[in-house]
Simulated scan of single mutants.
Amino acid sequence: MTAPHDPVRAWHRLASTSVLLDGFHALKHAVRFHAEVPVAVTPDRRAALTLAEELAPDVRDTLDGLLAEVPEDVFKALVPRPHPTAVAALAVRPSRAANLETLARVPRPAPVVVLDNPRNLGNAGAVIRLAAGFGATGVVTTGTLDPWHPTVVRGGAGLHFATAVEPLAVHELPPGPVFALDPEGEDIRGLKLPDDALLAFGSERSGLSPELRACADHLVSLPMRPQVSSYNLATSVAMTLFHWSAAGGGAGSGPVPGGPDVRPA
């Protein structure tokens, strides 16, 4: 990857059809997971590369060739709400056909997370980040929320490129047994979740839609103290994926070169 000769012109040409990577961490993960990044900008190349040396030395050389320095006022015009790390980039969205092929392939090495009609962009991003961390096959959303919205990508720290993320209707869900989280379901502690499962979670406000509930093969509940009404969506996904992994599910192929980045994005 190399920086374009005129990064501002390239940005304006590509912005409407590209994925916004807002912040160093989003760009770092996109590069690690082989996203196509045609343009990346920062008002301070030295600071950005120093950050790379500290947190992600495995991508430092790539970012050195990719990052273009622009004046701060230009940077803020391109990214109205810039991340504190003052780095932004545009990436090519992965092929929908390729993602659908990945989601449909069976047997799968890891479950697919299904968010049924989610409402909160930040929650959706957090779930994608979790799914990538656990090595889930993908994240599917039903309903009107765009899982590639810039706020979702920011919440996911660019880890959309580490798993297959696609919006689908309920009748288009990939094959596999549907384990839907519901307070009336069987306690998850007594179940083994198969690798090819679809793990379905209802919306933050109204729970599972009647359509998804009707196609569920199993209703599953999380342990919860009486009089506590619910968990946050991302917390529920984390608990469920941890239960799957604790029974022998994998979490990818090991650490990324350069070591783990434990700082929050």
Rank of each mutant, 00 (worst) to 15 (best):
Q227W: 12
V170H: 04
F24W: 14
G185Q: 12
A86F: 02
T2E: 14
E54F: 06
V237M: 04
A265C: 13
H149P: 04
T17S: 10
R9D: 15
P109Y: 00
V220C: 12
L100S: 00
A265Q: 07
A162T: 06
R13T: 13
A216D: 11
P7K: 11
V165G: 14
Q227T: 14
A251K: 07
V39P: 00
S221W: 03
E72S: 06
E184M: 08
V220N: 04
A246Q: 02
P183Q: 13
K192I: 09
N232M: 01
L63W: 03
F242P: 02
L121V: 01
E54D: 13
P260C: 02
H34Y: 13
V39D: 00
V70I: 10
L21K: 14
A40F: 11
D187S: 08
S16M: 01
P118R: 05
A3C: 13
F179L: 05
P264Q: 05
A97L: 01
M1Q: 09
A251G: 01
P80K: 06
A15K: 14
A77F: 02
P84C: 00
V37M: 09
R189A: 03
F242V: 05
A200P: 12
D64S: 10
G158R: 07
L100W: 01
A200Y: 05
H218P: 11
L168N: 03
V114T: 15
G65H: 05
P80T: 05
G190A: 08
P260A: 06
E101Y: 14
G252C: 00
G254T: 01
A15M: 11
V41H: 07
E69D: 05
V70W: 00
F201L: 12
H218M: 13
R129L: 10
R96Y: 07
V256S: 05
D196G: 03
M224G: 06
A246G: 01
G125W: 04
E204Q: 15
P71E: 06
T235D: 05
V127Q: 03
R9C: 10
I128H: 12
P210I: 03
V31Q: 04
A136E: 13
E166Y: 10
A214D: 06
R105F: 08
A48Y: 03
H218Y: 15
S236N: 06
K192T: 15
G259S: 12
W244Y: 14
T50M: 11
P80N: 09
M224D: 12
H29M: 10
E53N: 15
E53H: 15
L219H: 08
G122M: 09
F179N: 00
I188N: 00
A265T: 08
S206P: 01
V152K: 09
L121R: 12
A124N: 12
